[in-house]
Nucleic acid binder design. Structure first.
Length: 467
RNA sequence: UCCCCGAUAGCUCAGUCGGUAGAGCAGCGGACUGUUAAUCCGCUUGUCGUAAGUUCGAGUCUUACUCGGGGAGCCA
């Protein structure tokens, strides 16, 4: 239900532009994208973030604010009271004939945003102002809608939303380097026998920021059957790529009584639901991306929304790569992890769309993944998509206590640190599965933006935590 | 962390063989009764990333460093 008229005292630009008839006097507030002056008339383009388009404000010589309007610059924040009338000009159906204009915040010639296209790299250096641009307005509106779509999808299907902890003492999840959380004095930490006495730290043990909510998600899946998490995740890896951030958001469903096939089906349903949702609810913004960022975007999204995903086992993928006749920088051999170039070739060249690769060799995957009957592979799956690469990683979890204990031994993980995790296998264990989807990677896929730093409001990457 | 590329006006970029800095946009002033990143005329803008070196002379060549980008690894 649309309640964007929740305030009686002013209109949002989006609602005005959707008007089907003249509305009489309106009051609007926002920021100016452009100011065009002629001898007897000033045109203002007013944007309030409600939609991509701006509202045209026409200030005639008869307006009490004609003088004021002529002195406004790009970026100024104003309120306008005026009559909403059909626009005689090209390019918009409605415009506001300005009466009184209130200037909340003027700008001067040092305002960094101009009415021209800026490079994304430059805009990253002014991340506090970039939401006021067309591209980032579109990005963050889409981000908001898609976040909502995540909850819609799972809530409609009876999944319980779990807020897994951000501070955790799990140090052996194997998903990446952790940021340390401590209140010990870094200059002079307490020591026992020369080693830092972590038991004297705030939580009585060594803690860090979560690298995944999966393990706790599994605990809740053994009570609520179907659950999901959606929250921030932190990796202290020194990754300097367009696809990695130190702080990002991840969606992790975990489902009981499910094998890998059900897991893949859920991932596909989810992915396609989100794409359809974006096409339906973010149309204007997607058209902007399609026009200025990625010309094939909408066509690609529509195809993905309407087509079943392909799937192949790791073993088959290796065979297909070997038979491709293509020479890769890294050799293709069973037992080796797929390199980025291999993944790209599979999803972009061989399949030309999203692709599940399943059943990887157990040596290259995490300890908790369920061992297959062949004794060599585990029930793991990655979803690869063109341009972005790996966007989902998941697996059926090892629910057999003895097998899991052996795996932990083989991976050099001390069972003592995860007794609570093993307890779920001790009592009332059940087959279950789950996956993680990188929210920003999905946004990259949906918007065509090519850098993870440009789909997260204030990106954190090695060497940068500004704003 | 490794490999490659880059850093010149507020922004986007050009700058030849080493010879002393330039275009568009923005900004400022003016013109124009309705524009769509308006148009037209005029004007202003520089520690050439930092430090050192080679040279009569360095934006240009060399080295180191800083920052940014692309790729790789790690992964989402």
């Amino acid at each position: 239900m649309d309640r964007s008229d929740w305030r009686q005292d002013r209109w949002r630009v989006k609602r005005i532009l959707q008007a089907e008839q003249a509305q009489g006097e309106v009051f609007v507030q926002g920021w100016l994208r452009t100011v065009r002056r002629s001898k007897g008339v000033v045109f203002l383009a007013l944007n309030d973030g409600s939609c991509l388009d701006s509202l045209q404000i026409v200030v005639g010589e008869d307006s009490p604010s004609f003088q004021v309007a002529g002195e406004l610059g790009t970026g100024a924040c104003i309120g306008v009271r005026g009559m909403l009338v059909p626009s005689p000009g090209e390019g918009q159906n409605w415009e506001v004939q300005a009466g009184l204009i209130t200037v909340y915040g003027a700008t001067d010639e040092t305002f960094p945003l101009q009415k021209k296209r800026h490079g994304f790299e430059y805009l990253r250096t002014i991340a506090h102002l970039r939401p006021r641009t067309n591209a980032f307005g579109a990005v963050f509106r889409v981000r908001s809608r898609i976040a909502h779509a995540v909850h819609s999808f799972f809530q409609e299907r009876g999944f319980v939303y779990v807020q897994t902890p951000i501070i955790t003492a799990n140090d052996c999840e194997g998903a990446g380097e952790m940021f340390r959380v401590t209140t010990l004095d870094p200059e002079n930490p307490p020591r026992v026998d020369g080693r830092i006495a972590w038991h004297e730290d705030f939580f009585g043990s060594k803690t860090g920021l979560t690298v995944s909510g999966q393990l706790q998600g599994e605990l809740f899946a053994t009570a609520f059957t179907d659950i999901y998490t959606f929250g921030p995740t932190f990796r202290a890896e020194n990754s300097n790529t367009s696809r990695h951030a130190s702080e990002f958001w991840m969606i992790e469903p975990e489902i009981a009584f499910a094998d890998l096939a059900v897991n893949c089906q859920l991932a596909e349903d989810f992915f396609r639901f989100m794409v359809s949702y974006a096409l339906e609810h973010c149309r204007d913004d997607l058209e902007f991306f399609n026009k200025f960022i990625d010309n094939g975007l909408i066509e690609r999204l529509e195809k993905v929304a309407g087509t079943a995903f392909q799937s192949m086992s790791y073993t088959e993928a290796i065979n297909r790569l070997q038979r491709s006749g293509r020479s890769f920088e890294f050799p293709v051999a069973w037992g080796c992890d797929l390199q980025s170039e291999h993944e790209r070739y599979l999803t972009e060249q061989i399949v030309g769309g999203p692709l599940f690769v399943t059943d990887y060799p157990q040596g290259i995957k995490a300890f908790y993944m369920r061992r297959n009957d062949d004794g060599k592979t585990v029930a793991a799956m990655d979803l690869l998509v063109p341009k972005v690469g790996e966007i989902i990683g998941g697996s059926q979890r090892e629910e057999r206590l003895d097998v899991l204990q052996h795996k932990m031994e083989a991976f050099d993980i001390l069972p003592a640190s995860l007794e609570w995790y093993l307890d779920t296998r001790r009592w009332g264990s059940c087959p279950h599965a789950g996956f993680g989807l990188g929210f920003e990677r999905f946004l990259m896929y949906i918007t065509g933006m090519e850098n993870v730093r440009d789909v997260i409001p204030f990106p954190r990457t090695p060497g940068n935590a500004r704003f």
